[in-house]
Design a protein around this nucleic acid. Sequence first.
RNA 1: GGGGACGUAGCUCAGUUGGUUAGAGCGCUGCCCUGUCACGGCAGAGGUCGCGGGUUCGAGCCCCGUCGUCCCCGCCA
Length: 549
Amino acid sequence: MVAAVGKVRLRAKDAINPKMETGEVEIETTELRVLNDTRLAPFSPAEEAIKDEEVRLKYRYVDLRRAEMQRNFKLRHEITLAIRDNLSQQGFLEVETPILTKSTPEGARDFLVPSRVHAGEFYALPQSPQIFKQILMISGFDRYFQIARCFRDEDLRADRQLEFTQVDLEMSFPRRESVFAVVEKFLAAGFAAAGVSLPRPFPRITYDESMRQYGTDKPDLRLPGLTDVRSAFMDENLATLQIDPALPVVAFRIPNVGELSRKEREDNHPLFDQKKGAKFIDDFKRLAKSFPEAAAKVRELAGAADADFVIVVAGDPAHHIKASDTKFEGRLSEREINVYAAAGNFRTELAKKYADRHGAFKITEEIVEAAHVRGPADAIDGSSAFHPIWIVDFPMFEYELAAAKWVPAHHPFTAPYEADMANLVSDPASVRADCYDLAMNGLELGSGSIRIHRKDVQQQIFASLGISDEEARKRFGFFLDALEYGTPPHGGIALGLDRIIMLLAGAANLREVIAFPKTAKAIDLMADAPTTVTEQQLRELHIRVALKS
RNA sequence: GGGGACGUAGCUCAGUUGGUUAGAGCGCUGCCCUGUCACGGCAGAGGUCGCGGGUUCGAGCCCCGUCGUCCCCGCCA
């Protein structure tokens, strides 16, 4: 690393380089100073794509110098700034909540921190600031938000890290609509900062519809969804094909894939989740040979063009699964959901694999590319590239067959629909939760709800979830107490900030927008964490390690 | 816990049905050139083909195991 000391001057006309930002000037150097020695990096920061994730993460300080990473973090900064500013303008106050706290019931595993002062006791890192933000409502901060770090000790994915950042907010006296309006505004502001305009209002879909149409509660609307093709088959057809006639029969198509060879199709088979009790037909030629009418009808119902790859997914009667067979009036059974989910998952996996052929994702890439030189003033229309959608009307409970009991589908502070309250005990299956998810392009961007604000209701929910008074007292006593001191109706939401950035950076992985991320095995390759600690440290913390042999 | 993909030079990759001394581009080192700026020219170094075992006359290639990275299911909103 050297410093050049001298006079900056214009270059000679024939020496001007229009390709360089500084191509018109040069330094007439009188002195060169060596500021620091440097080793040769394992790869050049000028490299466009380094595929070896191991080497990238180990030498993250070099990786972050790459133009793409510099761009991603500048983008992250701009978006975060815009969101913060927008929420502030909407009357929200940013309040920090503790990192060392008590376990909050988001359903994930907690990261625990041993207390030195209190032997045998632990703090938990927040999975979300859930209880604290609800208490802030009780404290009269009508509109709270926080760019909050959250921690969940679960296995990682492309869109999941152990620690991540949420745009967390809560408001008093809201209706679902007012939460939606707030979110749509700040999200649009964030997108605008990235040079993309987001059309509002966002469309909505019920949970059931989302499962039926996409086989997931985070649908990617850039590709055609699932089509119910049960009517294409006669009962005898299904019997021959060994398909469960009582379960959904759906088809989906991946546009423009063309005909696949037997080998190509077989290579796709591991992408299908066998364990869900569903099966698929991907050999359409063979289907058409045996059941020409049904096959034609399937393609017609699915709206398939000749070059579209069509796959039928249906229930497998022979497959022994643990799912509940119980069908509750008016809602999808677990087995039905499993068939939809198997289809939905296959759909997204194949969509990823054949992205080059259907081209539906390319539109997003192109908009992202075009947008990153723009700003709020000249934002590019993002309506063809980004598809936000609200998912509403989730069931309040799910039936757990093994334990033969109803378990919450969400955290236990989610309010049931006012109209369904009466059925809490008598008919749990029918109770809908007043909660909502926001999905975009196959990613869950966030999740929120109108909360329970009355102590008696909260206790009733705990009771219906099988949480004893004693346990509720121990875990949430302070919160139950707080509820008694004039709690306004309140509700809110939290959106994954990293995921928003990831979408706008055109990245396929959260690691591209988090400076120092962990690997899929939860390791920090640069810092080499986690590691063992000294005996002395353990002793102070009253901890003894007992490894399984 | 399960399924799948990948692992060849510092980086990106090629390597045929198993067959001499494992290649390319970029990078690196030395020299030359000095209005070059993704310079150019000449010469050169650099590989336990992730690791261990097996099959074979012979393994980068086949088989088994193992480690690592990535993607997915489970788990997690």
